[in-house]
Design a protein around this nucleic acid. Structure first.
Length: 281
DNA sequence: GCGACAG
DNA sequence: ATCTTGTCGC
């Protein structure tokens, strides 16, 4: 049986616009300023969060990719490591995004704080444009965190992306936070061979003649993960932090915790809303 | 033109 | 991404 795949992204968007109207792409934005934390101020309708159309979205990615810093640029010691993930509702996979960003205390890897936010997604999942679906909710979750993480591991690609701006880099540039992309599968590129069997073994992920990430074995006898630069971190350092935060699972603790937090958040709010409904009736 | 395609 | 128990293999 042939596997159903996403059609051409532009066709997805055209269908989406035809179904919901162009306005929905811009409407219902975040109404309030997210926060004013010294120098950080975000416009709820900023094109980095909500571009008007797909052409603009692709252009935003190309522009933001120019701002990605590929070298280590830490402000100090890493004491709080962030984990970033979102959860979707199967019944409503196109409309609800439940975001969670957690912070773990390093090196103990104990949970410090959990930031969550639920929001209506205005876009379906389109390969290459994941960030525009998930980032708005994540920015709200990030705003709740205190202290802010020194470094964040993001569930998805960093610069290993068709336009060099996967969700990890997107969040990193947007929030000016060091980020690392940790993906469970490949978006673009091809592994240069197969990584060795031992945790820490890796081979380059190559695309168009460039190394855009690493295929990293984090655990014995499990599939590798795909690590890439997010922002303000070198690939070597990115691999180091992924290994430092891996314990007994394939995925590093920050993204594991974030995944759990997002899931619990989604299921919790689902229960709460169903209870509210039963009270309304 | 056809296939590939993070979450 | 999500729905899900047991089960096969190291």
């Amino acid at each position: 049986m042939p596997v159903k795949r996403n059609p051409c992204p532009s066709k997805v968007i055209l269908h989406y616009i035809a179904t919901y109207g162009v306005g929905i792409l811009l409407a219902n934005g975040v109404r309030s300023a997210l926060w004013d934390d010294g120098e950080m101020q975000f416009d709820a309708h900023h094109p980095w969060l909500y571009p008007p159309d797909m052409t603009a979205a692709a252009q935003v990615q190309r522009e933001m990719a120019q701002r990605v810093i590929h070298e280590d640029a830490f402000s100090g010691p890493v004491e709080a490591i962030g984990g970033v993930d979102v959860s979707n509702n199967l019944r409503d996979p196109e409309n609800l995004v439940y975001a969670a960003i957690i912070t773990l205390q390093y090196p103990h890897l104990k949970l410090m704080q959990t930031g969550t936010h639920q929001i209506k997604a205005r876009l379906p999942y389109v390969p290459g444009f994941l960030a525009f679906r998930e980032v708005p909710a994540l920015v709200h979750a990030y705003a709740q965190l205190n202290p802010k993480p020194d470094l964040m591991l993001v569930d998805g690609q960093g610069i290993s992306h068709p336009r060099g701006l996967g969700i990890a880099s997107h969040i990193g540039v947007l929030l000016d936070c060091p980020t690392i992309g940790v993906a469970k599968s490949i978006l673009v590129g091809k592994p240069e061979g197969e990584p060795g069997p031992l945790p820490g073994d890796y081979v380059p992920l190559v695309w168009k003649g460039n190394t855009i990430g690493s295929v990293l074995r984090t655990k014995l006898k499990t599939n590798p993960v795909y690590v890439s630069i997010g922002h303000r971190v070198s690939l070597t350092t990115a691999i180091e932090w992924v290994m430092k935060t891996c314990t007994r699972y394939r995925l590093p603790e920050p993204t594991r915790f974030a995944h759990q937090a997002a899931n619990q958040f989604r299921q919790g709010t689902a229960i709460a809303s169903s209870m509210q409904q039963s009270l309304d009736i």
